[in-house]
Design a protein around this nucleic acid. Sequence first.
DNA 1: CTTAACCCTTACGTATGGGTGAGGGTTACG
DNA 2: CGTAACCCTCACCCATACGTAAGGGTTAAG
Lengths: 225, 225
Amino acid sequence: MSNRRRLQVSQPHGVFAPRSAVVGGQGVALLGAHPAARAQASSVEGSGLGEATPVEPETPSSVVAAPDPEELLQVGELAKAAGKTVRAIHLYEDLGLIHAHERSEKGRYRLFAPDSLQRVRWISKLQHLGLSLSQIQELVREHEDADSARLGASKLRQLYLDKLAETQERIAALRSLEVELRASLAYLSTCDSACEPNLSIRSCTECERHLGHAAPELVAGLHIT
Amino acid sequence: MSNRRRLQVSQPHGVFAPRSAVVGGQGVALLGAHPAARAQASSVEGSGLGEATPVEPETPSSVVAAPDPEELLQVGELAKAAGKTVRAIHLYEDLGLIHAHERSEKGRYRLFAPDSLQRVRWISKLQHLGLSLSQIQELVREHEDADSARLGASKLRQLYLDKLAETQERIAALRSLEVELRASLAYLSTCDSACEPNLSIRSCTECERHLGHAAPELVAGLHIT
DNA sequence: CTTAACCCTTACGTATGGGTGAGGGTTACG
DNA sequence: CGTAACCCTCACCCATACGTAAGGGTTAAG
């Protein structure tokens, strides 16, 4: 075999290829890459670099890093690596959050540059920060037609400032919930030790077994008519 | 006037009644309450208790606390007090998460006991804990036909144990986002001070002004093709 | 009597972030 | 050549938690 990229790697059909094979590639390969890329692929092979290490190989080429055609990812690979579904990747592409580096000639497969993975992870982080996909879309668009680097950076800075404040609020809210949960658990532990086995659940509101502690709201709320 | 509950409180029509009036009530009043309740209302009035203080008046009555008919809340009052919409309250009622204590005779207005407010707040807290309304529904149903107090309590305890763990995970995740946000802000602050005004935003990937610090993922993600 | 603020029920609409096919290709393996 | 694993493009479907009328009451104020 002349290339690391090969299909199905001689695994039985109905079985998922092991991770190394999955990362190595499982379809496409030289399927539709540029002829140039194709040639490059066969010549580069055996370069001595680790199979799929995510370290940058110090590309000493041009300023604009041309992604090694061997490292292009199919949508399924990208999805799996990012913990997303193929559908999600498609969606992100539709929304313009991500771009395939190229398409294979034959099947028109999307081929993503390796840093697309970083991009998808970035999207996920923003989602966890509470941004919707359309807000991310807006952010990306603003960035794409930003006049200067400085202005773009300052926009981003403002966004992250807001998000920092928001995140701190959310943390505070969750911490207070945590405190309430702990109090509730402490309160409820009494039930396990001191409650008599066949008391009706309606009698909880008059329970005197909690050493004068009122039921925390998280507990009391359930006992309301 | 014979009662605290009165309508519109002599405010101009198009204007929202001030908070005190809102809490005091603005409709219904003796509109449809039980005749018994109605009588009670006029006799109890001027009991000397604070207008609408949420403290329990130590009801020395029967074991099952009969809500003072004067303190019953209309759906709008309840909603406002809980920071929800009327629609949301209706929804909660439909789902069986909350029950109107009674309906007025004339307009069939929902009249809620004061502790419904606590209940609604409880619902909100559970939502913030990540429970969906149907999960809350399930919890309420389980509780309602729980055989014994102890078993009910132990179920709740288990739930809250899970939620405590989950909440801690969420806090940890948010904290790590917070760290990333701070790092990104620090990184971006350099842009404001050291970046030249008319550099293209495409040049960010080769920026050497950040003292050898690589761009944090939250920043780098945006610069990807 | 009109207006305005509440309320009622019923019921359809909405946004988000995908899920889930259907119908059709491409490769590689046996 | 069949099968299985990828992939493609539509294009409809889904659950959640309400929003938003529409059509119709009730009261109190002017």
